[in-house]
């Protein structure tokens, strides 16, 4: 439970566009432990998404260190970063981003296809993931036939089907009504407990904060507060 999986040391990120420099993150020092349910909150432009992108190996820091599972990510090339994402990190997006021509089952299966799992391994894992999100009966439906809440559940199933250590979710409830948002958060808490998956969110949604075990507040690229909540 106390095993550290992510450590950020003096991490900074600066974007350069022509002569304009914008520092999105300044000297961030954070540590994430296994099965934490963490939310990063803050106003727009505070650096939440940039930090999620770095943690998800989608972007690289300009300065400082990002240690993932004890490895310095600065040494990762594109291929290594892809391999880490493929195996260890799941993503949940604000706009679900399901592939509309594939069924629910196939959308979830994609993560395992990339890992070259056998058909029977894929079948077991996909059905288990769909059961966890309560969508077993909708496996043959296609995304356009689903509601927003159902679509986000499929996205969750797709993120957790490979049993990653980390799931990164950027505003996962932003496009959902209160009822669906609550249901989605409950589902993620259940997965967090059952699979010991670490969840890291970026969110504006105050309702989401009620479910978090840790809240990191970001302001102008700095960590202004890091609150651990005992549930």
């Amino acid at each position: 439970m106390n095993e550290e999986i992510i450590r950020l040391e003096n991490l900074s990120k600066t974007f350069v566009s022509g002569e304009i420099k914008f520092t999105a993150l300044k000297d961030i020092n954070l540590s994430f432990k296994k099965s934490e349910f963490t939310g990063m909150v803050g106003p727009s432009g505070s650096g939440k998404t940039t930090l999620l992108n770095i943690i998800g190996l989608i972007d690289k820091p300009t300065d400082g260190k990002y240690i993932l599972f004890g490895e310095n990510s600065q040494a990762f090339n594109f291929r290594t970063a892809s391999a880490y994402r493929k195996k260890h990190i799941g993503f949940i997006f604000q706009t679900f981003n399901l592939l509309p021509v594939y069924t629910v089952y196939e959308n979830v299966e994609l993560a395992l296809l990339l890992l070259k799992k056998t058909e029977s391994e894929r079948k077991d894992a996909v059905m288990q993931a769909l059961e966890l999100v309560g969508l077993k009966d909708l496996k043959d439906k296609k995304p356009p036939q689903l509601s927003g809440g159902e679509s986000q559940r499929v996205a969750i199933a797709r993120a957790i089907v490979k049993k990653p250590e980390i799931v990164i979710a950027d505003e996962p409830t932003a496009n959902l009504d209160a009822k669906n948002a609550h249901s989605i958060m409950q589902t993620m808490i259940r997965i967090n407990k059952e699979l010991e998956t670490s969840f890291i969110f970026a969110t504006h949604d105050e309702k989401v904060m009620l479910y978090l075990s840790r809240i990191i507040k970001l302001e102008d690229g700095n960590v202004s507060e890091d609150i651990k909540i005992n549930s």
Partner: peptide, 14 residues
């Protein structure tokens, strides 16, 4: 564009 973005995020190589 969308599909490729998702596949890249999921770890498929460019």
């Amino acid at each position: 564009y969308n599909e490729f973005g998702i596949r890249l995020a999921m770890g498929e190589e460019k």
